[in-house]
Design a protein around this nucleic acid. Structure first.
Lengths: 341, 341
DNA sequence: AAGCGTCTCCAAAGCGCTTTGGAGACAAAC
DNA sequence: GTTTGTCTCCAAAGCGCTTTGGAGACGCTT
């Protein structure tokens, strides 16, 4: 059922029906009621693709889904997407997912934009001096960056967690508990959030005249396998760390396994703080030893990004709010304790 | 940059450019080369939305994402989607996600189809006599069902795991180990896969003259919270089970926590077999006691569904392969042992 | 009675693409 | 020299919608 058929059915022009349905004033209320009723009965829904061609809007956001052989599905991505979906549902938006390998990410964004199937998009997994930002600014659609990119002079709309502050704070807490030897299970070294988290630790240590031993830092995709593997490696050293900071509860999952397998106890022998994106599946309080965390909901971030994008699509520009930096909350549980003597 | 601009630039008609780009024979190879070069240089990409209007195809699959307040993100869904994305990438497809609350699922499919933004779609989370199947058959787009729906007489294209056989087999194994008292942590009772899994257990028990105690069956959304809660409840009884079957490793995660918290040991005190969808994040071999499982990759299912849909969109109808039933593999690890005396 | 708003409604253009039905140029065939 | 066929290319229609620029009908004022 399309407009033309409906117009034949009602003996009205397509114009009138379109206007009746879209709430324009120049149509008799009686006629409008008749149209609305017929639309309801026939189940008529305007073709969004045709509407997009006519108006330029489709009611859809775009996202590029990173595909890597090593990490088939990123739970952080899924959780973010879940927030995005919540917000889209509210506004009758849907979203388009464009899978892309890392090398094709820029091309994927271009394709998505020129495909005409979205009104706005977000980009994530930012790296230093990320070229995608300049590119996005040159494209005609609104966008929001999730995260940030270091050493970019220009302004751009983003939403990020203050990773540096979060990890500084966590480190300071461990220092106060007497820890001196720190390890870090970090995300991929080229990603902005990983760099900032590391800087946060280094900053806090430097203030006490300490330094982070590069041999006790791993930078990997955030899977529990990597968490296990590198934690095990750290523990094999003759001077193992007494405190570990993890960039994700997923890494912590593996780390805890390694610690226990080495016959050690989380908390008593080794203190651990993980960044908690509030992953629904991996609650820090459900670990065998409940985990101390720096917490910031990635799902809320997804909601907020969608909210901003939809506002931008609807023409509600809010330049004042372009840059948004969320503070993570330090939550102490049983995985942090005084350093062993 | 659009076709018209490109045609002005080259001094050729839009027709010729379109044909050159789409590989039609009636264009001089010299001209084609010139067009290809210009398209490359200007970064011209045809507007998919316009193309869809002209041809009826966009190169996009559709999926409805169930939104529930109780389970913000379903890891099974994410894992399936990951497989879908892999396959879409291969064929230069993308996919559209339409978030919908459960009551609106049918409407969501209708909207998706009439929106014109997809060429095919899949439906999942099937229930008994699911009305979506008849509806899907009445709509003009190809679809594939992930799972099945009981008591539907008509034929329809699906891909499912043989849940009944998997759980029968798992139960038989436990029976051979001497277990008599079984519990089940199942998925939502209205879902087809949950019903079949339960039937599988019941069938195997019946063959030995045993029955599944309804008090030892839970039917919930598959979160670790529910796994914990119901397993704890089972263990509080004066006649606790010695064998547990879980519909997901996610439920098993909680169940294991409850078992250990009760001072019992998985394997020695309680045997446990979980259905393993091969979730990347939750590897059965990484559990404190490695889990015996019935395994079938939900990611592979996503790949296969995408493959079939894309083939259907491209007009390669394979009626012979409409119904596909995969067999899950029973993998024994340390969580299953002889029943305690 | 003519003129003027005000309501309603409509025909047609246009969004960017594909595709149908030629048209023109040229060479080969008669 | 005319006809036929083959290569290339193009103008225009059409996909389903929105929107511009009227047009007709009606009632009111002068």
């Amino acid at each position: 059922m399309n407009l033309k058929e409906l117009s034949n059915l009602l003996g009205l022009s397509q114009t009138t029906i379109s206007r009746a349905l879209n709430g324009y004033p120049e149509v008799n209320e009686e006629t409008r009621a008749r149209v609305l009723k017929a639309a309801e009965e026939t189940g008529y829904r305007p073709n969004r693709v045709a509407r997009r061609l006519a108006t330029g809007k489709v009611g859809s956001l775009g996202i590029v889904m990173p595909i890597t052989p090593e990490q088939p599905v990123d739970i952080h991505f899924a959780e973010f997407q879940s927030g995005l979906a919540d917000e889209c549902l509210k506004h009758d938006f849907h979203f388009v997912i464009m899978p892309a390998e890392r090398e094709q990410e820029e091309q994927a964004i271009r394709d998505l934009v020129s495909s005409g199937s979205i009104d706005g998009y977000y980009i994530a997994y930012m790296r230093e001096r990320d070229p995608r930002i300049a590119m996005a600014k040159s494209l005609p659609l609104p966008f929001v960056v999730h995260g940030r990119s270091m050493n970019i002079a220009e302004d751009y709309p983003y939403l990020d967690v203050d990773n540096e502050a979060a990890f500084s704070e966590a480190t300071e807490h461990l220092l106060e508990l007497g820890h001196q030897r720190f390890a870090m299970l970090n995300g991929p070294a080229d990603l902005d959030f990983a760099q900032r988290r590391r800087q946060g630790i280094e900053k806090a240590l430097r203030a006490r005249g300490l330094a982070l031993d590069p041999a006790l830092v791993s930078s990997t995709v955030m899977t529990d396998g990597h968490g296990f593997q590198h934690m095990a490696r750290f523990l094999e050293r003759k001077d193992p760390p007494t405190a570990v900071l993890c960039a994700s509860t997923v890494l912590a999952l593996g780390a805890v396994r390694a610690i226990r397998q080495a016959g050690l106890e989380v908390g008593a022998d080794i203190s651990l703080i993980a960044h908690d994106d509030d992953l629904h599946l991996l609650r820090p309080e459900h670990f065998s030893t409940p985990l101390s965390t720096t917490r910031s909901s990635i799902r809320d971030a997804g909601r907020r990004v969608a909210e901003r994008l939809i506002a931008a699509v609807n023409g509600e520009e809010i330049d004042a709010q372009q840059r948004e930096l969320w503070r993570a909350e330090l939550i102490l549980r049983a995985s942090t304790a005084m350093a062993p003597a």
